[in-house]
Amino acid sequence: MSEEYNVGATAVGIRAKDGVVLAAEKRITYGFYSLSSSGKKVFIVNDRMAIASAGVIADMQTLAKILRVNAKMYELDAKRKPSVAAMAKLLSIIMFNRRWMPFIAEVLVGGYDEEGPHVFVLDPVGSLIEDDYAALGTGAKMAIGILDSGYKKDIDVVEARKLAINAIRAALERDPVSGGGIDLVIITPTETREEEVKVSAVLT
């Protein structure tokens, strides 16, 4: 993809001892042209799983819909919810099968299942890695420094939420194509909830 049409975004995912936090900023851009400051890049899949993405907004939305449909079909067929690893692997296969004309999106799959909290990282051709935390998009270089310095193995979701906001804030301050505030999804064994942090609150 040429630099003129390069798509800006920043998304982060953090695995805590008691859950998962996914976050992304809200600006929709093509190159340095800003289309909107109210885009959504974090999507709930079911009541214990979500994704956060960086890339073309249409591709992010399509991947979220594909994952939601397949998670529901699995649940109806198997009479139980799919594991986070199974859904991440399915998305990896879908993206790999489109490698010649790929979805222009990097994806974080996060959730909580019988094995505990998980965060998986996928690139546009379906490479799949499980990690404790990750940052994607044009602001990832700024965000990963905050994650590296602030992450610890016994972090809880309250601390992980603050760390995710600080990581995205670093991108908002330094990456010209990230902005517009922050969307979060916080997943624990008892709930999955969305939250929005306004840009005025982020930058104070």
Rank of each mutant, 00 (worst) to 15 (best):
A135Q: 03
I28G: 01
E25Q: 07
G145I: 02
N46S: 10
T192S: 12
L147H: 05
S38D: 14
S36H: 05
F96L: 11
R27S: 08
R98K: 13
T190H: 08
A54D: 02
A164G: 08
S83F: 11
G8T: 02
S127V: 11
R174D: 13
K65P: 04
I66D: 12
M73A: 13
I165W: 03
R80D: 09
I168G: 00
E114A: 12
A167T: 07
E173L: 15
G39H: 07
D47W: 00
L90Q: 14
I129C: 00
I57M: 04
S127R: 13
E195M: 09
D132T: 05
A143W: 01
V177I: 09
E196N: 10
L91E: 12
K26G: 07
G126C: 07
R98D: 12
L128N: 08
I28S: 00
M142Q: 12
Q61K: 11
G110E: 05
F43G: 06
G150E: 14
A171S: 15
S36R: 05
L91T: 13
K162H: 08
D47Q: 12
V121H: 10
A54R: 01
G19R: 03
I129V: 14
G13M: 02
D132W: 04
N166K: 14
I93F: 14
D183I: 05
A50E: 08
A160I: 05
G139Y: 00
S83I: 06
A88Y: 13
L122E: 07
G39V: 11
D47F: 01
V125I: 15
D175C: 04
K26N: 14
I165V: 15
V42D: 00
G110D: 07
A164L: 09
M73H: 12
D113N: 07
S2K: 08
A71E: 13
P82Y: 10
K198G: 08
N166A: 14
F96G: 06
L90V: 09
L203E: 12
F43C: 05
I168S: 02
M73V: 15
L184S: 07
M60W: 01
Y151W: 15
I94S: 06
E194M: 13
D59L: 01
L90P: 06
D175E: 10
G19S: 02
V42G: 01
G126S: 03
K198A: 12
A85W: 13
Y74M: 11
N70V: 10
